[in-house]
Simulated scan of single mutants.
Amino acid sequence: MKKLLIFLTAIIILLFAYSNNYYIKEKKMNDIPKNAKYCYFASGCFWGTEYWFEQADGVFEAVSGYSGGHKANPTYMEVCTGLTGHLETVKVGYDADKTTYEDLVRLFFETHNFTQKNGQGPDIGSQYLSAIFYQNEEEKSVAEKYINILKEKGYDVATTLREYKNFYEAEDYHQDYYFKKGSIPYCHFYNKIF
């Protein structure tokens, strides 16, 4: 009886995980708004970054991946070596009729330690650095504005601004990590600053 109960519990958990994953993928494919825009943020482990952006008003998707490096289509293991030059990055898809790039920049700074120079929390290494990948002068100007505001508030900002050049989607098991796991990030916390 005990083995049957354990077996049934395992089946229920697997079905729940599958249905949640299906829902997420269907939502991403079917809910792209007419005024969709994309932006790219690196703030340590992409699981936590993705978690906060997925909950933001006006965001229709957040995809974990790799940006800024020199190797095409890197794997997670390659990025972890620090030799590809990539940062763990989240591609944020947002509806420009419901939120702004400026709102997302503020959320970026309020959900990680932008003063840490060698990683994020316990995740140490060049792939975990804080950076904003800007696609045009308008995005760069908004990011610079908030870095300057933070410096005026006395923060030693480690976040760098980098011109966007590439984004490679991470492996499936990295996508929607905390939603699938049913937990919250261990090194990304919301801290109201602005």
Rank of each mutant, 00 (worst) to 15 (best):
N35W: 08
A62M: 10
K25T: 11
T49D: 08
L14T: 14
M29G: 00
K34E: 15
E26N: 06
C45A: 10
Y18C: 01
A42F: 06
T49A: 09
E50P: 00
K27F: 02
K34R: 09
P33M: 15
I32G: 01
A17D: 07
F60G: 01
S43E: 14
I24V: 11
T49W: 07
D31L: 06
N35A: 14
F16L: 14
Y40N: 03
N35H: 13
M29N: 11
D57W: 01
Q55V: 04
W47I: 11
S19Y: 10
W47G: 02
W52L: 04
E61A: 11
Y22N: 11
E54C: 00
K25H: 07
Q55I: 05
Y38T: 15
G44L: 14
K28M: 03
F46Q: 11
N30Y: 01
F16D: 11
Q55F: 03
F41D: 07
K37V: 06
A56W: 10
S43K: 09
W52P: 00
K37S: 05
N20S: 13
N30A: 04
W52H: 11
V59I: 07
A62D: 08
W47V: 12
K37Q: 10
I32K: 13
A56P: 00
E26S: 04
G44S: 13
Y23D: 10
K37H: 02
A17I: 14
W52Y: 10
W47F: 06
L14A: 12
